[in-house]
Amino acid sequence: MRYVVYFIIILIFWLLITFSLSLSNIIVGAAVALLTTLLFGKYSLESNVKIIQPQRYFWFIVYLFIFLWEVIKANFDVAYRVIHPALPIKPGIVRVPLEIKSDIARTMLANSITMTPGTITMDIVGDEIFVHWIYVQSDNPEVYAEKVSGRFEKYIKKIFE
C-alpha cells in the first residue's frame, strides 16, 4: 500500500517537472517512478493511515507559516552579524535532547533547525541531537533546548505522530 502512495507522488512530480500530458511522457514517467519505488521504497513512510487524516495537513500549513517567519528572522539575524564591524559571534556545539521518535519526523526537525537562527544540525546519536550554534546565549541546557528545538517540536509531533 505505501509503495502505491510513493509511486503516485513520484509520478505527479515527474509530470509537473516535464509539464506535458502526452502518452509517451506518461509511460516514461511511470517506468522511472516504478524503478525508484522498487529501489528506495523501503525508506518511505511507516504507516499509511496517517496520510488520509486531514488535521495533519492543517497543522502542516500552520507550521509552514511559522517556519517561514522564523527563516526570515534568522536571515536578518545572520545579516546583522555579518555587517557589524566587530563580528559579534560566540560559536559552540551544544547537546539537545529529542522527544520525537520516528525517522521522518527527525529528518524534518533536523532540516528545520538547519535553516533557522544560526544553528546547524551536526549529528544524531541515540536520543540526542548535536547543534552548532553561532551565538550560545546561555549555559543552562533547558533554556537552549527551548530556544533551538522547542518551537518546532510541538508542531512536528502533531503532524507526524
Partner: peptide
Amino acid sequence: CLGLIRFPDVYNRLQSATKC
C-alpha cells in the same frame, strides 16, 4: 558571500553562506 569572506572558521562560514 560577505560572510563567506569575513567569518573566522569553516563552521561559521557555512552558517552564513548556507542560510543567506
